[in-house]
């Protein structure tokens, strides 16, 4: 599970690349702006330019390529069903007919655009936030005055997804130890139901014990993060460069009318 998580644990930071010297606040802001801009683009030229730029920046941040590819594919796998169905559900000029359903060119265009935009955002996130530790992300979020609840929720997710996953594996192992094999049978479904139920009950009980443990240490409802230092020259330069790129992308969008 840790392998697939968006965040690299602090202990395994690959030092030496260029983006992780930047302030987390600047990186988070850049990611959010890039994501919002690319999602609102309508012309394919601007979207293609963004994805090329995101790929370029991803290369610049020297991520763990295998892991990054894995993440991108995981996201693509998630939206692929929508993309395949889109040409059939979007009205427009007929491209071909399959079992009486018309696929439209306009639908295909939409699907391609969505795929490009999603991948551009994903590459941007990997480039800017991929090698950031969860603590840094938390600090950056607090520094940007994002809701404390959101930050707290994020920190808990990072910490406990792994614990829950281990709990699941333990339960699954104990089932296997008693010769349980997953089959398409009533018995199988019932046992998986028990497994999920047990996982929920345990998660609930654990959450109670955690809040107790936190209260015992004087928790008042929010995390304390160490303050971030003031922005450096490097951060301002990066911010300026990003603004220039952003302006260029918007100009491209304005100059190129949407194809459909």
């Amino acid at each position: 599970m840790t392998k697939n998580s968006i965040l690299t644990p602090a202990g395994k930071l690959t030092a030496g690349n260029r983006t992780d010297k930047l302030d987390p606040r600047v990186r988070i802001t850049a990611t959010i702006i890039l994501a919002i801009t690319v999602v609102s683009f309508a012309s394919w030229q601007a979207v293609t330019a963004t994805i090329i730029l995101a790929l370029f920046m991803m290369a610049f941040s020297e991520p763990d390529w295998r892991k990054s590819l894995h993440r991108i594919l995981a996201m693509d796998g998630f939206i692929v069903a929508t993309l395949i169905l889109l040409p059939f559900t979007y009205p427009g000029d007929v491209m071909f007919t399959l079992w009486g359903f018309d696929a439209s060119w306009q639908g295909l265009y939409r699907a391609v655009m969505i795929a490009l935009k999603a991948n551009a955002v994903m590459c941007g996130i990997i480039a800017f936030l991929g090698n950031m530790s969860s603590t840094e992300l938390g600090r950056g979020m607090t520094g940007l005055y994002l809701p404390i609840k959101l930050t707290t929720l994020m920190m808990f997710t990072v910490r406990y997804i792994d614990v829950l996953h281990h709990e699941y594996l333990r339960l699954r192992q104990s089932m296997r130890a008693r010769a349980f094999r997953l089959k398409t049978s009533r018995h199988s479904w019932k046992m998986i139901g028990y497994l999920v139920g047990m996982l929920l009950v345990r998660a609930h009980e654990r959450s109670e014990r955690i809040i107790w443990a936190m209260k015992c240490r004087g928790f008042h409802g929010h995390y304390h993060f160490a303050r971030l230092p003031r922005l450096s020259r490097r951060d301002f330069l990066f911010g300026l460069a990003m603004l220039a790129v952003w302006a260029a992308l918007i100009t491209l969008e304005v100059l190129c009318p949407p194809m459909i």
Binding site: A10, S134, M155, R206, R209, A213, H220
Partner: peptide, 22 residues
Amino acid sequence: DSDDQLFCPTVMEDVAFGPLNL
């Protein structure tokens, strides 16, 4: 169960959590 008690990502933050709250 120590897993209940350690809820910050890194050891340092977890140990500092109590003093910060105080």
